[in-house]
Design a protein around this nucleic acid. Structure first.
Length: 485
DNA sequence: ATGTGC
């Protein structure tokens, strides 16, 4: 029997890439880490294994608390964590969704090839940087109003369509068609709405970015065709979330839940996991508010899409706004009511994915019609020096991970440590000179915090996902230019 | 992630 130990935590190897922590104390279920030995060493380096054990204490957790191959330490619940919790007898935990509700990514196809863009990267990066609001604080693509925020919270991308910022095609190619029907804007605190008002269509800061990329490889021609991806073509990746609005919802509800559900809190090893019992008023209110923030984040990415279309049409004579099509949009931080098979019966669950991507295979009803025969696109960004992947939902994802896989490369070190190791200006110069990647940011500190060297190996993360059969690679991209907060 | 502390 192969085991690995990190401090006082022992993991037993179940099979290749599957490591299990046996239940002890009040753990409801075992914890499982899905990783190669090399990735496990990195995951064991921070607090994420202890956090995963803590997560396994959440009442109603089904099968096992899961860590994806890109897992790292988060607030309470690890980033790269999946927790499927009974929606009737269990609970819902804001910390297991994350502060940035529906932080996620979308990919746009363009009619451009790399040859069209080569030599014009700096003009393009400047145009995008000027057009797309980024950084901390206010100012978005549209001037916000109370009605605009309420429309976005209630109807998501449908609101954007009514307002002329989206197409019918966009709706059909977004997770949940860009609208969570469970949204309850009345449970979104006024303060959250106020913060969101002047952030509608803005990237924010941290690891959020807009990146122009070229497709360097396709691995599964049938599926790459279905996704409309061809080698040499230019795509755009937009990574951002619900800004201050989602953050305010999370912090408000964590505080309320801590105050009202102390008896549940006492059963948990970390108060940052604070959870509302299923069926309680606060569980319903948080879930409704969280779903509304999910809609808001989809609108945020939609408004940035709109501005990106205008910018590409301005810069390139050959591009019309209609030519820039949405491939797909996926949430990376979300909890959803989903039905999954557990012990031979269908159960209604709150599937918490925090830094994890839904990866439903062909046939599952939630996959949009355009992709239902091949499986949903799974978009996984790497660092700004490494490129990204498009996967398809894997056949084993439903039985192994409640239909989930990784969401990115995963950090290797803290932001503080990153700033000690790297200097933003040097990172920017090296990327331009050595890799022909043109980065523009509001602050050098952000570039240092997001330097390629602070991330795990995206190729290794994707390899493990494919080996496990939870998400299979379809295409790889490489950065051309990148704007960020 | 975040009007970057409670």
């Amino acid at each position: 029997m192969t085991t690995r130990e990190f401090d006082d935590i022992t993991l037993e190897r179940v099979r290749e890439h599957v490591w299990e922590i046996a239940p002890e104390g009040e753990m409801e279920v075992p914890a499982r880490v899905l990783a190669s030995e090399a990735l496990l060493e990195e995951i064991g380096d921070d607090d994420s294994l202890q956090q995963l054990k803590n997560a396994a204490h959440l009442p109603g957790m089904q099968k096992y608390a899961l860590a994806m191959p890109d897992a790292h330490q988060g607030y309470g619940f690890p980033v790269g964590g999946v927790g499927a919790i009974d929606a009737e007898d269990g609970c819902i935990s804001p910390g297991a969704v994350g502060f940035d509700i529906n932080c996620g990514v979308r990919m746009l196809r363009t009619p451009l090839t790399y040859d069209d863009v080569r030599g014009r990267e700096e003009e393009l990066v400047d145009a995008l940087f000027d057009a797309v609001p980024s950084g901390l604080g206010g100012g978005g693509v549209v001037e916000g109003s109370r009605d605009a925020v309420d429309g976005a919270l209630e109807r998501g991308v449908e609101w954007a369509l009514e307002e002329g910022y989206a197409t019918e095609y966009d709706l059909k190619h977004c997770e949940d068609e860009g609208r969570r029907p469970d949204a309850k804007p009345e449970y979104v605190p006024k303060k959250a709405k106020d913060r969101g008002m002047n952030q509608m269509g803005s990237l924010g800061s941290g690891n959020h970015f807009l990146e122009v990329q070229r497709v360097t490889d396709t691995f599964d021609d049938g599926v790459a065709d279905a996704y409309g991806l061809r080698e040499g073509e230019i795509v755009v990746l937009i990574h951002c979330g619900s800004r201050g609005l989602g953050h305010q919802i999370c912090s408000n509800y964590v505080r309320k839940i801590e105050q009202e559900h102390g008896e549940l809190l006492d059963r948990l090893p970390d108060k940052d996991l604070a959870a509302a019992p299923a069926g309680s008023a606060l569980a319903e209110e948080y879930y409704g508010a969280m779903c509304a923030a999910v809609n808001f984040a989809w609108v945020n990415r939609q408004l940035i899409t709109h501005r990106t279309r205008e910018t590409l049409a301005d810069v390139f004579d050959a591009v019309d706004t209609d030519d820039v099509e949405l491939l797909y949009d996926v949430a990376h931080n979300i909890a959803k009511r989903e039905t999954h098979e557990v012990d031979g019966e269908q159960r209604e669950l709150f599937v918490h994915r925090k830094g994890a991507t839904r990866a439903f295979p062909a046939g599952r009803a939630e996959v949009p019609a355009a992709y239902r025969d091949v499986g949903q696109p799974v978009i996984i960004p790497g660092s700004m020096g490494a490129g990204s992947y498009v996967l398809k939902g894997g056949d084993r994802s439903l039985s192994e991970t409640f239909g989930s896989t990784a969401h990115g490369a995963g950090r290797l070190m803290s932001r503080t440590q990153a700033k000690q190791e790297f200097w933003g200006g040097d990172v920017q110069d090296d990327l331009a000179e050595q890799e022909h990647i043109y980065v523009k940011a509001n602050s050098g500190a952000t570039i240092a915090e997001e330097a390629p060297g602070v991330y795990k190996d995206i190729d290794e993360v994707v390899r493990v996902s494919g080996d496990l059969g939870i998400g299979d690679k379809v295409a790889r991209t490489f950065p051309v230019c990148n704007i960020k907060g």
